[in-house]
Amino acid sequence: MLPTCREVAEQLSENIDKPISGFRWFKLKLHLLMCVYCRRYDKQLNITSKAIKLSELTKAPNKELGKLLTSFFIQNHAECKHHMDNESQNKK
């Protein structure tokens, strides 16, 4: 039995993430060969996926936040180190 259009629609998305293989791939291909709507859907789905990629903007790091967290990072490390040194001294 060949997959239905609805199943094909799901499999085409799956195929973007991990190529479908074997007999499932064969049945999917066969359906696509016979069904122009699913072929169009396939193309649209791939365009959509790429459009999401294009619309995702790279956001430049917030410098203030970077400074704030860096000082927290250093302070936290100093405290931890102090704490650990004390512990090792207590053991002695």
């Binding site: 239905t4 609805r6 122009v36 709507y37 699913c38 649209q44 365009i47 459009a51």
Partner: peptide, 27 residues
């Protein structure tokens, strides 16, 4: 419950054709 499919899970209306082949053309 998607209304785009019939009871046999086939497309009810034709899936349309888009003007562009790439997201750049569409976007």
């Amino acid at each position: 419950a998607d209304i785009r499919f019939d009871q046999k899970s086939h497309w009810i209306h034709p899936v349309s054709q888009w003007d562009g082949d790439t997201p750049e053309e569409l976007l």
